[in-house]
Nucleic acid binder design. Sequence first.
DNA 1: TTTTGGCTACCTACTAATAGGTAGATAGCA
DNA 2: TGCTATCTACCTATTAGTAGGTAGCCAAAA
Lengths: 195, 195
Amino acid sequence: MESMASTSEKILDVAQSLIVAGGYNGFSYADISAAIGIRKASIHHHFPTKAELVSVLVDRYRRQAEVGLESLRGELSSPAEQLQSYMNYWRTCIRDASPSFCVCAMLAGEMQMLPEEVASRVRAHFQNLAGWLTSVLRAGMEQDLFRLNNRPEEEAQMLMASVHGAMLSARAFSDPGLFTTIVTLQITMLLGRNC
Amino acid sequence: MESMASTSEKILDVAQSLIVAGGYNGFSYADISAAIGIRKASIHHHFPTKAELVSVLVDRYRRQAEVGLESLRGELSSPAEQLQSYMNYWRTCIRDASPSFCVCAMLAGEMQMLPEEVASRVRAHFQNLAGWLTSVLRAGMEQDLFRLNNRPEEEAQMLMASVHGAMLSARAFSDPGLFTTIVTLQITMLLGRNC
DNA sequence: TTTTGGCTACCTACTAATAGGTAGATAGCA
DNA sequence: TGCTATCTACCTATTAGTAGGTAGCCAAAA
């Protein structure tokens, strides 16, 4: 009754945590093999090439993110609360060191040397996320729940950059709390509570 | 009369551009060897191990950054102009794809699997940068040149995260201009020109 | 002055380990 | 029967790193 997860799911889980820790070149089939007690060749059976593995991995990640973000957009919570919830998700991740970093943010740094099939998927995730943030900000604006100082697309980009930069800072300083500090202030500032 | 740069400087130059493109695990001695027309063993002569090479590289980067930031702090320019100049440096870098990314920001993402001697240097750079930004923001505040909504240390962290996150976004979207868009708005916002 | 010795920078040639990937066999299940 | 998942055993290329040699330079000793 223990592991309901299929082998390929387990492979993706391990690969994801390894990528989050060290990027595309920071893991090997041997690492995954050792981690889940299966031979390298068996991993190739599920994912013939590394580029394919990571492509599937990013697809899965994007699907999960989409579901997660969509569920936040329920009519239950206000746009401001949705942004808070989005941040809270990452806050707990970073605090508990579960994923502790966005896979796509990690891969984005390595864009230049990623296989094209992976790079395009990472790009797509950034577009989705920017789109979601934009729509939430626009909704809040139209409902007069908060005032924005700039166009919602621009504020969305600022917020996204702030989130990813804050992940980086939290890592660099080995201080999970720093993520929350930065992003909370950023949200407060963007929503124009000052004035 | 062409290359005044010593061999070891050339090695560091190439290594830096490779790290910026693909991180610590994204380059090898063979890559450098091919790039500057020297044998692998000769690189080991200058830098016995990879960890040592990258440590020296980060030291050099930190020294250059310190000089660069210190020169911005000259009494000639106002704190606001200093922040602008800092951003402008990266704007041209990213536009011209010269370094196009902060080495330390790149390495910060890989913190967890970096040799300790490298990781500590990356941490130190983040501390320096946060310190510099804090002091510039504090100076502007004390001279009543602009109003901050938060403590200067916090705003410094926000700005730093914004800069690094904007680098990531510029890469992800393959849009150098996005960096400037994000950081300009961020600076404007932090300095409280709104209100 | 010539010679000697040491130093630096580079070389060829090598190593052991690891990388991603393949071929082909086996065992169980539909 | 054929399919899926796994295995053992292998391959080639690349990894970081080493051993040992050579050519040039510079300074001190003869």
